[in-house]
Nucleic acid binder design. Structure first.
Lengths: 116, 116
DNA sequence: AAGTTGTGCAACCAGAAGGTTGACAATTGG
DNA sequence: CCAATTGTCAACCTTCTGGTTGCACAACTT
């Protein structure tokens, strides 16, 4: 799980982290304390979640006095949507071609192909 | 981790599963045996991965004789891209407004823009 | 009928994930 | 300077994950 894409998907697999991202997107930068306030979990747990988001590249943290505001980085979102959209498009195109073939022939056996 | 979105993100957090999805998108339906052939792992492990993909709604399995072809379902992709794009857009809009405010402070006459 | 093939299920294991508490580092208000 | 505030790090526990092996079982082949 070392690559960026895996980390990004894994980061967003957790509802709490998705909520953190949603709130950062809606309200802008916020500190761990502010971010953690709504949840019934320790600040340390929130800090861990933020670390996961940071290592996934979804978030950066800076130091403003003794506060450490968290900032959402939108770039990784592009990485994810590109991956998803690529294969969704490929699948759709493939099914479109299949439909075309079925429409033309009404019955043909083209199977038994090795997956490289 | 009961909701669909969490399962979908978690499913794609694994490189092997992303590869399975990629190949299903490129080559169309395939059996577990065909799908597992390229990997240095047991067929049972592949079967587990397919189960994860199935429970995430990314894939369906049918029964054709003793073969159980796996079929890619593109719908869940939409769910994921919608989530991602929504918050990316919110974040970008927020930063755009911030830029506008900063622009105003430095003497520009740029006004607030409605973006929805 | 008997064997082979394709696939799933259960038990087990090591390591990662997500939470807890306790200690500690840094900044700053008094 | 002292102490409160803000947050991280470390150790620990429990649950989840991803792999293994062994077995079951239905469905083709011969």
């Amino acid at each position: 799980m070392t690559d960026q894409l895996s980390k990004a998907f894994a980061a967003l697999a957790d509802p709490t982290r998705r909520d953190l991202v949603a709130r950062l997107a809606a309200d802008g930068d916020a500190t761990p304390g502010e971010l953690g306030a709504p949840y019934a979990m320790s600040l340390q747990a929130v800090s861990k979640h933020l670390k996961v988001l940071e290592e996934a590249g979804l978030v950066t943290r800076s130091q403003k006095g003794r506060r450490r505001p968290v900032h959402l980085e939108a770039d990784v979102f592009d990485l994810m949507t590109k991956w998803i959209e690529r294969y969704r498009r490929e699948a759709e195109e493939r099914y479109a071609r299949l439909d075309a073939v079925l429409g033309n022939l009404t019955g043909s056996d083209d199977r038994e192909r090795d997956v490289s």
